[in-house]
Amino acid sequence: MRVSIVVEGTLYPLLSRLKDAGFLTYRWEESRSGPPRKYYQLTATGEAFLTELDQTWDELAQAVKKTTRKNR
């Protein structure tokens, strides 16, 4: 089975873009193990976008399922 690995470094540009796009907001919190931490949170726009992604995923998953069944 293939295991997907997302290293932490890939997240920072992504978080920055999503924040710029208005999907995320963040707050600072003090950390005991180092510098203060940023905690990201979904905005209402982000929630709506997530819902849209869910729907798209479901539709695609259905399409893939139907196609692979036909080809089997």
Binding site: V6, T10, L11, L14, L15, Y40, F49, L50, L53
Partner: peptide, 21 residues
Amino acid sequence: AVLRPTSAWTRCGCVFRRSCL
């Protein structure tokens, strides 16, 4: 672009969803 599954939106969103949500 949003509806396109191979779009950057979808990719970023999926990785974002897995990573952050």
